[in-house]
């Protein structure tokens, strides 16, 4: 991405990422610099919301790694996403406890209702994206859904749809 074309907002984000990477004192000649990659990517995703190619390239450059190395790591770990998320991220837990309590039905119904599949694109209006998670450790509340960090437990299909509709109303 060329600097001239970059918006002020994007510039500020790259600057924020740079400030973090600066604290790592990366030494080009030390192979152990690689050890900071995942933490840097976490930070980058926290700043940008996702890890598009230009962000990966930036991290690669700052850590003196190849773009392929960074991309290989990003594509390996579920936590990293290269696509932007919707305004509301709906995470459906598909851990065992939730599964035996019927969370896959909840997921299927929400996918049907919003017309998008889990872990793909956000809805056309950009409002929702769905992810299937493996165990958030709230097994006591199974089945569990998380919307932007807020946990909803002991759900039924009907209850889950009601919650999504609430968010839809808020827009």
């Amino acid at each position: 991405m060329c600097c001239q074309q970059m918006s002020e907002a994007a510039k500020a984000k790259f600057a924020e990422l740079d400030r973090f990477i600066d604290t790592l004192n990366i030494d080009r000649k030390n192979e152990r610099r690689r050890g900071w990659l995942i933490r840097s990517l976490h930070r980058a995703q926290a700043i940008f919301g996702y890890l598009p190619r230009e962000v990966q390239q930036h991290v690669a450059k700052r850590l003196f790694l190849s773009e392929a190395q960074v991309s290989g790591v990003v594509s390996f770990y579920n936590y990293f996403t290269t696509k932007p998320k919707g305004k509301y991220c709906i995470d459906i837990c598909l851990g065992t406890a939730c599964y035996v309590k019927g969370s896959q039905n909840i997921l299927a119904e929400i996918e049907r209702m919003l017309g998008v599949k889990a872990d793909t694109e956000p809805t056309a209006d950009g409002l929702f994206s769905i992810s299937a998670l493996r165990c958030v450790g709230a097994c006591g509340l199974a089945p569990v859904m998380i919307v932007n960090g807020k946990v909803y437990g002991k759900l039924t299909v009907a209850k889950a749809i009601e919650i999504i509709n609430e968010y839809k109303k808020q827009g």
């Binding site: 050890g35 995942i38 990517l41 976490h42 390996f76 770990y77 579920n78 936590y79 990293f80 493996r134």
Partner: peptide, 8 residues
């Protein structure tokens, strides 16, 4: 600490 990133 080192952070995982979602890989069982």
């Amino acid at each position: 600490f080192r952070l995982g990133a979602g890989a069982f």
